[in-house]
Design a protein around this nucleic acid. Sequence first.
DNA 1: CAAAAACTATACCAAAATAGTATTGTTTAA
DNA 2: TTAAACAATACTATTTTGGTATAGTTTTTG
Lengths: 141, 141
Amino acid sequence: MILNQATDYAFRAVLYLSLLQPGEIVEAKVIAENQHIPLRFLLKILRSLAKAGIVKSYQGVGGGYALGKIPADITLKDVLEAVEGSIRINKCLIDPDYCNKQATEHCPVHHVLASIQQTISQEFDKYNFEQLKEYMKQNLK
Amino acid sequence: MILNQATDYAFRAVLYLSLLQPGEIVEAKVIAENQHIPLRFLLKILRSLAKAGIVKSYQGVGGGYALGKIPADITLKDVLEAVEGSIRINKCLIDPDYCNKQATEHCPVHHVLASIQQTISQEFDKYNFEQLKEYMKQNLK
DNA sequence: CAAAAACTATACCAAAATAGTATTGTTTAA
DNA sequence: TTAAACAATACTATTTTGGTATAGTTTTTG
């Protein structure tokens, strides 16, 4: 019931990229140093983000990473799911075999957890990185 | 970002007790068999629930467990927190040392996660075991 | 009053997940 | 053609999870 460290790093890396000029490319090393994230671990995370289209990677000399979309089109949910896979709060919600009574259909716990999971999912989808940028600007004043 | 197995078992154990006559005592073994939960593991979980006042334990011959409150006064959040401790979705929300920039106050990620955490907390608090009982009855018809 | 049936407490343990590292390879600009 | 960047895969140490074991306490009942 907690986000993992990789997701936390991913949020901060995407926020960092969101604060650059649109299209601006920056090396992973710069992000790592600025955000205090272990470089090799960050590279791994960035690959997940690239696969999801959240960042775009550029190989070779002068390469690095830039956002793959505008900040307004990237939600916390997008980043979370790129790193951890889709949100699920209980195993029985994915695999009926985990339902210890094999009674998914009639199980009120299952039913209610599915509803909570949906709310949580929507909640993470409510916030995009344009909003986080705005919040950041206001707090610097 | 997932409930652990103990919490899942706890939900189902409390639901089981909720369906009994008010005040009815039943041995852990009966719950374990009915709900397919490893007995010793269940006993450990029941101790957590007892500490939180959710169930009441009776030692000695003829002992066992009963609910410590009426089902309407037990929410999913109560059970969840009794088993896993309070809901927290990111380490930086508890311990500022985990904030990799030591900047809790100015961090938009922190700010937004705190808000999401509160929503999640409220969501689990929205459902009590009287409601789950009702849902169950309706589904048996 | 002792024996058995129940829970309590603490400690232990194996397996899985997490967080990160290492190695080797590929791409691309200069 | 070399060096600077990312890519892919595999490995590893630590922590967490899920569960078990052992020894002890409480309470009923014959």
